[in-house]
Amino acid sequence: MSPWRRSEARIAWWLVAPALAGLGAFILLPFALAVALSFTSLRMGSPLPLEYVGWENYRLAFDEPGFRRGLANNVLFALVVVPVQTALGLALALLLDRRFHGRLLFRTLFFMPVVFPLSLVAVVWVLVFAPGPDGLLNAVLATLSLGAWEPRDFLNDPAWALPAIMVTSVWQGAGFQMVILLAGLQAIPRHLYEAAAVDGAGRMRRFLHVTLPGLRNPLIFVVIVTTILSFRVFDQVRIMTRGGPQDASTTVIHEVVRTAFDQGQVALGAAMSVVFFVIVLGITLLQRGLMRQRGEVQ
């Protein structure tokens, strides 16, 4: 090895050292700790000695009604929010995928909620969902239904709390889908559309046979990212409903924080975190599999 090569290797290690130290101390170590703690009896401020308890915390987690409700809510959240938000994002992208005056302005307006901090979005929507006939949404619905709508206290109603959080999340996130799908639409070669038109394909057929296949990868990406985000939901829940009423709107991460932080049951919270990670990992592997399939076809 030449001296120059050796010095290159040394410099390379100096360059990655700070990043490696950060990743090790603040991602890898806590991750290992989450797994390790989940098999112990650790509680905040408990005088009892630390013990190895095997899979006990995992059993306890799945016995916890709050955690089970959180899991179910996250699944429901994903089942509703992912298709709705993706369809909305796609519709916005299709609307903007043409030349017209004000295109940039509309894109900016639709994308704006994405840059809003979730805590602020949550607070604004608390006001939108305000109870009584003066609440913004109650009033709008009353007008649209010509007065037939009975005003509700959305956030304190077990049937409405979770849907209200879903609406908030769709509003905040659809612009993200739109930007990615718009970039995908613009990457589809125009001559494919022209060729399809020459072959006599109508708008619907062109959409099904040119647009959708061309958007395959961006669509997989936004669907997977939104699914993962659906399992990470926390800020809106904490601020809008605190998981209530009666756990109606709780989520996995809300239960993790409530268990480990509010109640000090660190080990149980760690076990819940590991379950959450396994879910996210599963979704990610599914994405990689789907993307790879595409690679083989080409």
Binding site: P30, L33, F234, V256, G269, S273, V280
Partner: peptide
């Protein structure tokens, strides 16, 4: 490490 969401490690990191 890209796969690990922050929420999965928030509690042990806090500890």
């Amino acid at each position: 490490l890209l796969v690990i969401p922050f929420e999965a490690i928030a509690i042990p990191l806090f500890y």
